[in-house]
Design a binder for these strands. Sequence first.
DNA 1: GTCTATATATAGATAGAC
DNA 2: GTCTATCTATATATAGAC
Lengths: 185, 185
Amino acid sequence: MNTKELIVGTANKQLIERGYNAFSYKAISEEIGIKTSSIHYYFPTKTDLGISIVQSHSKALADTIEKTKDKNALEKLNKLFLYYKRLVQDDKVCIVSALTSDINTLEEPLRIELIKFSNEVIAWTASILEEGHSQNTIKVMTDVPLKAKMIIANLMALIQITRIEKSKESFDQMTGLILAELTIN
Amino acid sequence: MNTKELIVGTANKQLIERGYNAFSYKAISEEIGIKTSSIHYYFPTKTDLGISIVQSHSKALADTIEKTKDKNALEKLNKLFLYYKRLVQDDKVCIVSALTSDINTLEEPLRIELIKFSNEVIAWTASILEEGHSQNTIKVMTDVPLKAKMIIANLMALIQITRIEKSKESFDQMTGLILAELTIN
DNA sequence: GTCTATATATAGATAGAC
DNA sequence: GTCTATCTATATATAGAC
């Protein structure tokens, strides 16, 4: 991993673990043992760095979509839920949640990137629902894009609730409930 | 409204409109025309002020519970949903959402207050579900506390999604869906 | 490409006059 | 109870040596 990637990775980790507050050049610099001025060499402004973080999530999602493209809808759905489960296990929140509280203070280019990523996640979820419908493994719903939005909203919020409770148990219970309601058995 | 209440109200507004970042003594001081040192007179530390903000939400909730205590379960449920709809209309998020991203950076007393308020909201929601069940207006569910948690999680997340989309339309569609699934008609 | 040094702004907080 | 003045820490950011 080169320095640039290390910076993005570290910044991302701090952002989703401790919030937008803890995401600072100084904190990154201390963690990876490099001066803040060196971070500015790669990312002149904090907005530049923020954009790179969101784009790294975008890229990871694209990879997952590519890797699972030959799996069936149920397997894809499980993959999606597994992604959020991992976040919970690591006491992290989704990047969308992490930035949404502060959305009114973000510079326009970063806000645009965040919206773009959020739409990609929802679009993939919707495509899984459509596919599951045609494979007769996922229940038909009247408004697929709306349902996709609700599923993602649910996962985002469940992570937050789980965090407050400091118990990872109810996350599994609740995702179990959502999956049970979605799938045909 | 006295100065102390004015400070809490202004701080709260900034917190849920622009996130934990924008919630600073300086920003409050500029908005209400008082020096930061005067704010410190009322709230020595930022944690003190944060606690007062959360407590003000707690008090508002207690008032709502008291005021609606003679209404039926469906009316209470509508009141609950209306509270979140108002937040969306004002481009605000729920206080729980606003602070959860940063929960790992909050001082213990503030974190405790946040958890307490979150539990109050969930408990009220659960009691509405129970009441609706006995009045035969709300569908029976296996695990009421879990369902209550999911409803609140849904509302919190819908606000966030709505914010990203800059469209208030899907909030109504989605809460409509939730209410339709919950109620007996 | 990484460093030292520095600039400027702001953070939360305190002492003490009035 | 509100002010001025000040403290210390930290923020993002830049200039320029190596």
